[in-house]
Design a binder for these strands. Sequence first.
DNA 1: CGTCTATTTGAATGTACTCAAAAGCGGTGG
DNA 2: CCACCGCTTTTGAGTACATTCAAATAGACG
Lengths: 195, 195
Amino acid sequence: MGMSEELILKNINRHIRLDGEETDYFLSLLQTRVIRRKGFLLRANEVCKNESFITKGCLRTYTIDDAGLEHTLMFAAEDWWTGDLYSFLTQQPSSLMIDATEDTTILQISRANLEQLYQKVPKFERFFRIMFQNAFIAQQERIKQNLSFTAEQRYCQFLDKWPDLEQRLSQKQVASYLGITPEFLSMIRRKQARK
Amino acid sequence: MGMSEELILKNINRHIRLDGEETDYFLSLLQTRVIRRKGFLLRANEVCKNESFITKGCLRTYTIDDAGLEHTLMFAAEDWWTGDLYSFLTQQPSSLMIDATEDTTILQISRANLEQLYQKVPKFERFFRIMFQNAFIAQQERIKQNLSFTAEQRYCQFLDKWPDLEQRLSQKQVASYLGITPEFLSMIRRKQARK
DNA sequence: CGTCTATTTGAATGTACTCAAAAGCGGTGG
DNA sequence: CCACCGCTTTTGAGTACATTCAAATAGACG
């Protein structure tokens, strides 16, 4: 069994216990895929066919507004799940883009396979219930910070929360996550550096 | 069976089917509670003991920052679930306040009862998995708007999305949801009215 | 009726954006 | 291997969106 499989099983086992047969069945539903830096997992107007678990690298989910500006909804690095959930569930065209900020390896599960998994191993309902609970809590925290913090405070929080992630991203990408312009982030960083 | 029970069963039945016995068992785990306008469901530093389903009225979840300003994370009116999920799951003191914007009736389920429910009727794992998925999608949409829209655009979106809700809330409450000051919301409304 | 809070309005201020130009950096091809 | 091109980052000046503070008005509640 490869590293990727070990990582995803460790992720699953945080919330539920699988026996050998269930483990094998689960792994049989997954597909490995590699996305090169600057490559796309999903483009706007495509239907999101899979949920993806990142085993290496980092994916960025973002929208492009009418003015052509990018707004990053989330980064997903190793040991995270990502995808456009809305498009995945409804099979409607996505409004989101997902690209790789560095060479990335993922394990994917299709909608049909996930439904089968829920049927055959209902424990996965529990797993994803807990996962989405946690995702909900994390997003709520982000909304709270967007409402109450200045750009500089949000930037400091970002560094605190993912200390290793900033070095792996361009400043433009970080700025689009914080909801500010790259120019303004540059100013914040200059100010921080003086301290 | 009262109106409240009918409403919550209709809510549940959107995603799973319960037989008579399961229905009775589920209802036996719930507690009805009334919260008067301006009363609290939860205060900061208390542990959130229940998840709540609103059958009448409206609850508002918010934080108070260091400067004493309120920031509204969500409104929950009839047919919605609410609570401080983080505090509920970890049984740690909450950082959130939940108050009633009008006289409100809820059905509550305690953590112990919910765990029992998951044990005895695993279908509820599926129900809450779907509920949290949808909540996640809704929150992602809000983050997207906070990143890309001006205050005026966010206000229009808010009116579009919950046409009836604004009349039930004070302008201060709406402003704290949009992430702006009541003064600025007043200005936006004046501008809109001139059209 | 009086008190307390919410809303309106305006002036001064601040945070963050736009536009523009220069410098830095990374990848690609010759 | 170096030169060049494109993209990112830096820096600054001017601007816009939203806040703060203050004072006046309007509403809600006992």
